[in-house]
């Protein structure tokens, strides 16, 4: 008689799901922090536009970049919304997988102890359902990773814009100091987001280690 995999599943699967849940919860917390910072960028970009307008012709190059930074901040917010949606879907699915594991363990125990003929069929059906959930989680994991990569690339572009703005600030004549301050802050925040996303991309939730 062939045993279903649900009968032979190692207990480490439950531990793995528990670890996955902890990891995804940590990623969620980190992304929440990044979303907060990304919102700050929007305000900073707006300030940069006002400052460039006040500086007039002396900061024309900065003005062009500050508009780009404003577009970037909006794109970043959209990217963060996508990330948030993916992370919520992942948290839900990891919870479902955890529930599946507990459910299956109880069913397995019942079937092993009982003589009911229907037991193995029910267990096999449960296993199919578990596989479906596991596959969905694997898909969501990939989507989340791809969304993180997209956000990372976007933030790298933001970093280039911020650095260019720092250079342009130097040509701002009497406005050079405040423009340098704004672009420096912008660069600092973008770097902060970049570092967070970089660390999230290395999370064991994606590598499985």
């Amino acid at each position: 008689m062939t045993m279903t995999t649900a009968l032979t599943t190692r207990p480490s699967k439950a531990q793995q799901a528990g670890v996955d849940l902890l990891r995804i919860v940590r990623i969620n917390e980190e992304i929440k922090a990044v979303v907060g910072v990304a919102f700050k960028i929007n305000i900073m970009a707006l300030n940069a536009i006002f400052l460039a307008k006040r500086a007039g012709t002396a900061a024309r190059g900065f003005g062009v970049l500050s508009n780009e930074l404003r577009v970037f901040s909006q794109d970043l917010r959209d990217g963060m919304s996508v990330l948030t949606a993916h992370i919520h879907a992942c948290v839900t699915e990891v919870s479902v997988v955890l529930q599946d594991i507990r459910h299956t363990a109880l069913l397995r125990q019942a079937v092993e102890q009982s003589s009911a003929a229907c037991g193995r069929a029910v267990l096999a059906a449960r296993e199919v359902e578990n596989d479906r959930h596991a596959e969905r989680l694997a898909r969501l994991r990939k989507q989340l990773r791809a969304a993180l990569d997209d956000a990372f690339r976007m933030v790298e572009l933001g970093g280039v814009l911020a650095k260019s703005a720092k250079i342009e600030a130097a040509y701002g004549q009497s406005f050079a100091v405040p423009l340098a301050q704004v672009s420096g802050e912008f660069d600092g925040v973008v770097e902060e987001i970049r570092a967070s996303l970089e660390s999230l991309r290395r999370s064991a939730f994606f590598t499985g280690n």
Partner: peptide, 8 residues
């Protein structure tokens, strides 16, 4: 598990 196996 205990109830199910007894019932079955």
């Amino acid at each position: 598990p205990a109830v199910f196996s007894a019932l079955s």
